[in-house]
């Protein structure tokens, strides 16, 4: 579904992602782990198209997308959530999700929609909110942190991606909220490919079928959760010994 070949992303002299290669199968639940600054979010940004790699190649669904813009990739089916809640705080929760629904249906720039289509879009948006247990009314800015994170998820799912990139979905959540999120993620449709960056390793091991560990912009381990957990490089990167 997703293949990275020797992808390098630089910020000035720093190679934030250094010749990273990885391959994710359709329906896989892949976690990216690693210490702060390992390049996890940068990999996501490169896959989503928000950052351009200086070298390497990114293929999505058998197609070279390295040079495609972020909106083009989104329309091909790459969806993402953001590390810091990235909501439209001035809009209602329903409208937050409806923006994604309209974009997916190619109606985002219509000046006007007939009443029937509007209702249809609102119904679909409300469905996504119900699935993530967020109330549709009220401004998104008024949500609690945990609700905001769930709204993030609803917005990403509303775009009906084929590949979903979750950047620290549990950041700032309580243990209970995090467990609730884990069950939501396990309930995602099996054909959806999910990549997740997360510091909460309990969540990672509850959700991921395969784990890639990064440190200093490079892949240091790749395998099943058990293999990666046992890897000496990973132990070293995390414990610094």
């Amino acid at each position: 579904m997703l293949v990275l070949r020797e992808v390098t992303v630089r910020f000035g002299a720093l190679a934030a992602v250094d010749r990273v290669s990885l391959s994710v199968e359709e329906g896989e639940r892949r976690a990216l782990i690693g210490p702060n600054g390992a390049g996890k979010s940068t990999v996501f940004a490169a896959v989503a198209g928000a950052l351009r790699p200086v070298s390497g190649r990114i293929e999505f669904a058998g197609r070279d997308v390295t040079k495609l813009s972020e909106p083009r990739r989104a329309r091909l089916g790459i969806g993402r959530t953001f590390q810091h809640s990235s909501l439209f705080t001035g809009l209602t929760c329903l409208e937050n999700v409806a923006l994604a629904v309209r974009a997916r249906r190619g109606l985002g720039l219509r000046a006007w929609l007939p009443r029937g289509r509007r209702a249809e879009i609102e119904r679909e948006a409300a469905g996504h909110l119900a699935a993530t247990d967020v109330s549709p009314d009220g401004p998104a800015g008024a949500l609690s942190h945990g609700q905001g994170r769930r709204l993030e998820l609803a917005m990403a799912l509303a775009a009906r991606p084929r590949l979903l990139l979750l950047d620290e979905p549990a950041a700032g959540m309580s243990a209970a909220e995090s467990a609730e999120l884990a069950s939501m993620l396990r309930a995602l449709p099996p054909e959806l490919t999910v990549m997740i960056v997360e510091h909460d390793l309990d969540l990672v091991f509850a959700v991921a079928s395969r784990v890639t560990a990064l440190a200093a912009g490079q892949v240091i381990a790749d395998g099943t959760p058990a293999q990666v957990r046992a890897s000496p490089e990973v132990q070293k990167a995390y414990l610094g010994t």
């Binding site: 989503a48 198209g49 928000a50 813009s69 972020e70 909106p71 083009r72 989104a74 329309r75 969806g79 993402r80 953001f82 990235s86 909501l87 439209f88 705080t89 001035g90 809009l91 923006l99 994604a100 974009a103 997916r104 985002g108 720039l109 917005m155 990403a156 775009a159």
Partner: peptide, 11 residues
């Protein structure tokens, strides 16, 4: 309100 998010939606 949020350019990054709009681009991620495909706008």
């Amino acid at each position: 309100e949020n350019e990054a998010r709009m681009a991620a939606f495909g706008y």
